[in-house]
Design a protein around this nucleic acid. Structure first.
Lengths: 214, 214
DNA sequence: TCCATGGTTGGACTATACGTCCAGATTGGA
DNA sequence: TCCAATCTGGACGTATAGTCCAACCATGGA
């Protein structure tokens, strides 16, 4: 089960027990990977799910893009394996005695079995039609801002610097979601998008035209 | 655990084993009720969840409105207990030797523990941010009818025979759920409740007054 | 620098939907 | 039968949803 570099790295010696413990605890559905930051290579893998071996490139260059949730801990964020399995991942930066980052510990948990189990439980004797949730989003206003916010984060520029296409995209998303079926939605969305009500309707009309063309 | 009418009804004698078996199988979370069709009363209850006893009115007059999914079997459909528990219910028409309906067997399964378990599993190590769901209910119209429908089923009388208090109750539920935040909701609800738009607003005003009193 | 162009804006304006009100019709008892 | 409570259709005023347009930037090319 354990696979570590031949020439036993001191860091591996130091962290192996933790890695192995986690791998054992989470059973066959979690893999633990220890990365070398400097060389960006895998130091060791416990319970490998992705055929990676020590010495392989780590490919975690995107780690620094994630905003650190304090204490050198990242995630949980979602990864997608090529075979479609969804993983929940957390990463932790391990520092040496001097406080310099020396390794990164990643735990990848395969959520598919859990999700399947949840689906089974949820579907047990479930009435075919109705969903039990609240009929409608209570603070849809908040949700609108969330949608706009996440889009903005994706594009990496503030709301009032979004291009026309961007705004069309967000609007399309919101429209599909049915926001404009709720009262007083238009001014709120316009506000969230930092556009006038007029423009809002103009863009909306454009979307409709686009749909009719295709 | 078992509660049946004193003067042992032949139908109870005939069906009691089945009822008890189901009640045992589904543990503490399911109740089995045997109804008399003719007198519309309860014949027996196994594992009672709703304090009903033999001789109580059945309140399932609405059963014949449900479209039979063939073979005298109805459901599963959703019921709502006053304390908020959600039940999945199935009903079966039991016929005598001559093929005439003699009793109705209902199984009510409390889904809340299952749903809680499902929520736990689904939430396990789930990435915190992104919700994949649609922002808003697309066919809320359908949902309104479902809510009204399930209420009607509970009360056991068709929509246009509901009392004032009943309508107030349904309305309160719908209002809490935020239905009236969506455009064009008022006429739809009025239609589903078989009342005029005027009455709808009158009842709504009464609800508001009630809330302000307390 | 000036202009042309495409997009945005505030405001005016119409069409719907919302919510209130009331006189007359209905309903369910005493 | 009559009364009281309730419901109803329609009229009405207000708020919100959409449309339209002239004036107003911003950008880029001449």
């Amino acid at each position: 089960m354990e696979t570590t570099a031949d020439g036993a790295d001191p860091r591996v010696r130091a962290w192996a027990p933790v890695c192995q413990a986690i791998a054992l605890l989470l059973g066959p559905y979690a893999e633990v990977v220890l990365h070398d930051v400097a060389s960006d290579r895998v130091l060791g893998v416990w319970n490998p799910m992705s055929r990676r071996e020590p010495g392989d490139p780590s490919l975690l260059g995107e780690l620094d893009r994630l905003e650190p949730s304090a204490h050198d801990v990242y995630g949980p964020y979602q990864k997608l394996l090529s075979d479609g399995r969804r993983l929940s991942s957390v990463s932790a930066v391990l520092r040496d005695a001097e406080g310099r980052p020396s390794a990164v510990l990643c735990v990848n948990l395969d959520r598919t079995p859990l999700e399947q189990a949840a689906a089974v439980l949820a579907g047990f004797a479930a009435p075919s039609q109705p969903r039990p949730e609240a009929l409608f989003e209570q603070d849809w206003t908040e949700r609108v801002h969330q949608v706009v916010g996440s889009f903005v984060r994706e594009r990496g520029r503030p709301v009032d610097r979004l291009g026309r296409e961007d705004r069309l995209a967000v609007l399309s998303e919101l429209d599909q979601a049915g926001v404009f079926a709720v009262r007083r939605a238009a001014p709120v969305v316009a506000g969230a998008l930092k556009v006038s009500r007029s423009t809002l309707y103009a863009l909306l009309a454009e979307l409709k035209a686009q749909r009719n063309d295709s």
